[in-house]
Write a protein that binds this DNA or RNA. Structure first.
Lengths: 137, 137
DNA sequence: TGTAAATTCTATAAAAATAGTAGAGTTAAA
DNA sequence: TTTAACTCTACTATTTTTATAGAATTTACA
């Protein structure tokens, strides 16, 4: 399941994608429209900025805007940025690989291969969902 | 990501699936072989029993055994039993449906449809992975 | 130059979920 | 009757999640 944070991030990105190009959105407006606690959203937008998905303008008349077009931002990107690995175990992850602490012999692990199959299929599906594709529906 | 509990459950089921038919396995043996804390495993096996995946025999010479054949137990079943919904949000779930608390109008939610697509694909992939298929590799 | 309104940064805190541990009770074989 | 297994309930420590608070910084504009 997605965390609240990831869900809010998606909703914020969907909001931004629906604005006119070059429009700069205030946190307050995103928060009200998407029903997200404002102070929490501030953090999330900063995370999105650090992830290079949105840009910001400071000061009065400042706010946030998309850095990439909607079809360049996939669900997989956002999941990885906030919730981390897409694989079901760290040992089966491409971007967040880690050995299982309880694993006696990774190369003989019966679980790992199956979970890598799932990862490949889930990843493909998640890369097929973009902010643009969600807006279109 | 799977919780430790789900991972342990999978490892325990894999262990059981590799025993001779009619063999009854002691918690201690499963714990040692799969490197799972014994007392934690006890709880997990009880959960698996309540989920009708394993049966048990009490008393001396007692233990656990599979109730279903390995190809009848899918990763989706186990995920649902321990980690709950397969969908990425409760509003997109088949078995664990719940309204999002922050949702203003579910029928107009741009996220939901995309997440249902992911759910269908992930579910299909997870139903394709069974205890038997994992043991075969 | 001052004020208003926005982002930015760091710290804190409450609640929930996770990952176990402890120990008493029950069952059944020998 | 003893032993060795499962069963059940409660508890606890840690981590993660979900925020909230408030001060600092930046910029537009009068």
């Amino acid at each position: 399941m997605l965390s609240q944070k990831t869900k809010y991030a998606l909703k914020a990105l969907l909001y931004l994608a629906q604005q006119d190009i070059n429009h700069i959105s205030k946190t307050t407006d995103i928060a009200e429209s998407a029903n997200i606690p404002k102070k929490f959203l501030e953090q999330i937008l900063l995370d999105l900025k650090r992830g290079h998905l949105v840009g910001s303008k400071q000061g009065k008349l400042g706010g946030y805007y998309l850095l990439k077009s909607g079809n360049e931002i996939t669900l997989a990107d956002i999941h990885r940025l906030f919730d981390g690995a897409i694989a079901l175990l760290p040992c089966a992850s491409l971007n967040f690989y880690e050995r299982c602490s309880d694993c006696k012999n990774e190369s003989e692990c019966l679980l790992r291969h199956g979970l890598m199959t799932i990862r490949d299929e889930t990843l493909k599906a998640m890369q097929g969902i973009t902010i643009a594709s969600l807006v279109k529906k």
